[in-house]
């Protein structure tokens, strides 16, 4: 009995691990080259050519790592939750694998955002850690990631683990705006609005452009790591299928 297909063709193709393995094999080099060019070029631009900030001097150059990693850590959580939801609703194995691959990347990027934020805090605020609203939200986001990773590794059955983490990620996704709002509000209650890290009235074009390059570079980097992990996961789970046998022995 043919069900009515109401999603585009590629959506169904994505459900096939083999098709996914092949397409990521083609996309991987493109994104790898793009990430390399953007990140190396962006770093050079950020470190050498971008002007120093008139208030913070050269410590401002940390923004080119801090902001892209903070954005990426949040997007990665979103992607994990959405992929988990697709896996729950359409029982799509590949979506489960994508969700599983997102968690460790997101956690490491959140750690990077926190570390650079703390390092930036030292010359700006005179302390390694300040309970700034954004840093605190990022710390909680890291906790959410760690919870997802812990739950995933605690459940032995792959399918159950994927479904349970998807539910947890979705609950977290609903909670993120609430957490963000409450932390922002808590922060303004406890300390008068001081100099914040990233809220700037208007960024000069020569500062903003390298930041954009770095953000896109970080996304490309994420795509590369994502695909590497996804391919591993596909091979691992499809190891009994004939095409993986051929791939390994051939």
């Amino acid at each position: 009995m043919a069900e009515k297909k109401w999603m585009p063709r590629w959506f169904y193709q994505l459900a096939s691990p083999r098709w996914c393995y092949q397409i990521t094999g083609k996309l991987l080099p493109i994104f790898a080259v793009a990430a390399l060019i953007l990140l190396v070029g962006g770093t050079a631009w950020a470190l050498i050519y971008a002007p120093a900030d008139y208030q913070q001097g050269n410590s401002f150059r940390i923004i080119y790592i801090h902001v892209p990693s903070a954005i990426l850590a949040q997007s990665c959580y979103m992607m994990m939750a959405v992929a988990g939801a697709i896996g729950l609703i359409w029982k799509m194995k590949v979506a489960d694998m994508v969700a599983k691959a997102c968690a460790p990347i997101g956690a490491s990027i959140a750690i990077l955002a926190l570390a650079t934020g703390a390092i930036w805090g030292k010359p700006t605020w005179g302390a390694w850690w300040v309970w700034d609203a954004r840093l605190t939200s990022m710390l909680i986001l890291l906790f959410l990631y760690l919870g997802v990773i812990a739950l995933n590794s605690a459940i032995e059955s792959e399918q159950t683990a994927a479904q349970a983490t998807a539910v947890l990620a979705l609950v977290g996704l609903v909670n993120i705006p609430i957490i963000k709002y409450s932390v922002d509000w808590w922060n303004t209650l406890h300390q008068p609005a001081t100099f914040t890290l990233t809220e700037r009235p208007a960024m000069a074009m020569e500062m903003w452009l390298p930041l954009l390059v770095m953000v896109i570079g970080f996304y490309c980097f994420f795509a590369v790591v994502m695909m590497l992990r996804l391919r591993n996961e596909i091979i691992q789970r499809e190891r009994r299928s004939s095409w993986v046998r051929e791939l390994i022995s051939g």
Binding site: G147, A150, L151, V167, N175, I179, S182, V183, W186
Partner: peptide
Amino acid sequence: IGAALTVGLRKGGVLISLLVLPLYIPVLI
């Protein structure tokens, strides 16, 4: 929610706190 996710696991206790504590923060604040 945390209890339901970990009910089938033998060592659920610590895991629940890990999953649920970040979600408790807004209520605490």
